[in-house]
Simulated assay, not measured.
Amino acid sequence: MKHNSNIKSMKLYNHVDRIYNELKELGKINSEFLFVEELTNFDQLHYCGTKAVDFSINKIGIDSSMCILEIGSGIGGPARYIANKTGATVIALELQSDQNNIALDLTERCGLSKKVKHVCGDFLTYDWEGKKFDAIVSWLALYHIFEHKILLQKCFDLAKPGGFFYAEDLFSRKPFSKKELSKLLKEIYANYLPDVQTYKSEIEKIGFNLLFCQDMSFEWTKFTRNRYLSYNKQKDRHLRVHGRDIYNSINSFYT
């Protein structure tokens, strides 16, 4: 996927430095050491936060002997959490330079730079120089990439024999109209939304053995609804901490 400024039409990816407002609220205003646990309420941009990451850790069996590749690592939340909890080495690949730069800073402040390596680049074109991974993971990022078969082939090629591919991703439950697809492209930068059977078939055709697939529609609907209600309930607090522009942007995205 070529870098495209249109990804910034997704409001969650704007004002990514807002996490520093949250750190200031915690009294962490300079370059003080940070505990991973101090960040997890703010640095997990996917649904269900660390609960989702814990699920993958347990499902894959991630431990300190493993090297993990995360695709679409954002500001580094899942990568830091995995490294801190399991001792695994994590290579965190992020397309957007602003998010990657913040991730680098936060990881260094958590003392995890030896365990988490942040890389800014396009997964489809990045040269891994023959490196292989015990597991390749991603949370709500792969649907941004239109060239899905190329993406899956690269994942298969990068996985060690017996390695794992774990992704939480979006699919379509019904066909979308052109108008709906246009809105989804703008609001969440959705470039690829196959139905679930197509998604599963593509994974298996590449050569992966499909071990587990779960429809999270009910859980994610509940999560996003509660997230929106909670954010609005704390409107005064968010306006004080972040200001109106950031509040309006995030509130619009959560809506």
Results as ranks from 00 to 15, higher is better:
residue 146 F to L: 11
residue 109 R to A: 02
residue 51 K to T: 13
residue 23 L to I: 11
residue 160 K to N: 15
residue 100 N to C: 08
residue 133 F to S: 00
residue 123 F to T: 01
residue 117 K to H: 14
residue 233 K to N: 10
residue 154 K to N: 12
residue 49 G to S: 13
residue 196 V to N: 07
residue 51 K to H: 12
residue 65 S to P: 04
residue 139 W to R: 00
residue 71 I to C: 02
residue 57 I to V: 15
residue 7 I to L: 08
residue 175 P to R: 06
residue 209 N to G: 10
residue 48 C to M: 13
residue 225 R to C: 08
residue 196 V to F: 06
residue 145 I to M: 07
residue 230 S to C: 06
residue 197 Q to F: 10
residue 163 G to E: 02
residue 99 Q to N: 12
residue 248 N to W: 03
residue 166 Y to I: 07
residue 255 T to Q: 14
residue 234 Q to N: 12
residue 122 D to F: 04
residue 65 S to M: 08
residue 6 N to V: 06
residue 134 D to G: 09
residue 150 I to C: 07
residue 240 R to A: 14
residue 167 A to K: 00
residue 17 D to A: 05
residue 51 K to N: 14
residue 5 S to K: 14
residue 32 E to Q: 14
residue 208 F to D: 04
residue 57 I to N: 01
residue 13 Y to D: 02
residue 118 H to G: 03
residue 62 I to R: 00
residue 79 A to Q: 02
residue 162 G to I: 13
residue 129 E to D: 15
residue 98 D to W: 06
residue 129 E to S: 15
residue 178 K to M: 11
residue 226 N to F: 08
residue 97 S to Y: 10
residue 98 D to H: 11
residue 149 K to F: 06
residue 150 I to Q: 11
residue 76 G to E: 03
residue 38 E to G: 04
residue 204 E to R: 08
residue 52 A to M: 13
residue 207 G to P: 01
residue 77 G to Q: 03
residue 141 A to Q: 01
residue 126 Y to H: 15
residue 143 Y to P: 00
residue 167 A to H: 02
residue 211 L to R: 12
residue 221 T to S: 14
residue 154 K to A: 05
residue 75 I to N: 02
residue 146 F to E: 13
residue 135 A to I: 06
residue 87 G to C: 09
residue 254 Y to K: 12
residue 184 L to T: 03
residue 143 Y to H: 15
residue 212 F to H: 14
residue 91 I to Q: 01
residue 227 R to K: 09
residue 96 Q to S: 07
residue 207 G to H: 05
residue 23 L to F: 13
residue 173 R to T: 14
residue 205 K to Q: 13
residue 28 K to H: 12
residue 221 T to C: 10
residue 246 I to Q: 02
residue 175 P to D: 09
residue 96 Q to M: 12
residue 102 I to A: 01
residue 245 D to T: 14
residue 7 I to D: 00
residue 47 Y to N: 06
residue 80 R to Q: 10
residue 172 S to V: 03
residue 80 R to L: 05
residue 122 D to I: 08
residue 165 F to P: 00
residue 127 D to W: 13
residue 126 Y to C: 08
residue 216 M to Y: 03
residue 13 Y to R: 04
residue 96 Q to Y: 04
residue 249 S to R: 04
residue 152 L to N: 01
residue 28 K to G: 03
residue 63 D to G: 08
residue 15 H to V: 09
residue 114 K to T: 10
residue 88 A to W: 00
residue 143 Y to R: 01
residue 241 V to I: 15
residue 60 I to Y: 02
